[in-house]
Simulated assay, not measured.
Amino acid sequence: MGKIVAICKSEKKGTAKKRIGEINLIENFGLEGDAHGGNWHRQVSLLDVQKINDFNKEGGNVVFGDFGENLVIEGIEVDKLPIGQKLQVGDAILEVTQIGKKCHNECEIFHRVGRCIMPVYGTFARVLKSGHIEEGIDIELIK
């Protein structure tokens, strides 16, 4: 079992997300009001807090949301989960749909930070069941 350390969203694609503390996950959409929401396979992005901490130890200077991640997770190596794995987050249910992604050469995050860890460690999911979530809530693997 893990927990949500941070919840972040942005209103524009290609920009860093801002930490918001709590939000509604909307079935077949993603985070309410998030730029990446929609009926597609990358509705919610997840990143392991340890990957962010490691990046900062190597000289990075980032805060939660800088890589464009929606949910920062502690206690689960989300990038090691199989496609199709379901996650219970409060009343909401997510399903892992993709690990890693091609990084945009011109994205704000790459230019500001110098490199991006999302292409390797970013994990994407779709929302199977709506629910309200907040920082500190448990997240667990389900069958």
Rank of each mutant, 00 (worst) to 15 (best):
I23D: 02
L25W: 09
I26R: 08
E27T: 14
E27N: 12
N28A: 13
G30C: 03
L31V: 05
L31T: 02
G33R: 07
D34E: 04
D34T: 07
D34G: 10
A35D: 05
A35H: 06
H36C: 11
G37H: 02
G37A: 02
G38F: 05
N39T: 15
N39K: 15
N39V: 10
H41S: 00
H41Q: 01
Q43L: 10
S45Q: 10
L47E: 11
L47K: 11
D48R: 00
V49C: 14
V49M: 08
K51D: 11
D54R: 01
D54Q: 00
D54H: 01
F55K: 08
F55N: 03
N56A: 10
N56K: 14
G60F: 02
G60A: 05
G60Q: 03
N61A: 12
V62H: 13
V62E: 13
F64P: 01
F64E: 00
G65P: 12
G65S: 11
D66H: 11
D66L: 06
F67V: 01
F67R: 03
F67Y: 03
F67L: 04
G68Q: 11
G68W: 08
E69H: 08
N70T: 14
L71M: 07
L71Q: 03
V72S: 13
I73C: 04
I73M: 06
I73L: 07
I73K: 05
I73Q: 06
G75A: 09
I76Y: 13
E77Y: 15
E77S: 15
L81Q: 00
L81K: 00
I83S: 03
I83N: 05
G84V: 05
G84F: 07
G84I: 06
G84A: 06
Q85S: 15
K86C: 05
L87R: 08
L87C: 09
Q88R: 14
Q88F: 09
V89Q: 05
V89E: 09
G90P: 11
D91I: 03
D91M: 05
A92I: 01
L94V: 06
L94M: 04
E95H: 02
T97W: 02
T97Y: 00
Q98G: 10
I99T: 12
I99Q: 07
G100E: 07
G100K: 03
K101T: 10
K102S: 10
C103R: 04
C103P: 00
C103V: 04
C103S: 05
H104P: 06
H104W: 09
H104A: 13
H104S: 14
N105M: 07
E106Y: 01
C107M: 15
E108Y: 14
E108K: 14
E108D: 14
I109M: 15
I109L: 15
I109Q: 13
F110S: 07
F110Y: 12
F110I: 12
H111D: 03
V113M: 01
V113K: 02
G114F: 06
G114A: 06
R115T: 15
C116A: 11
C116L: 09
C116P: 01
C116T: 05
C116V: 08
I117D: 04
I117L: 08
P119R: 07
P119S: 10
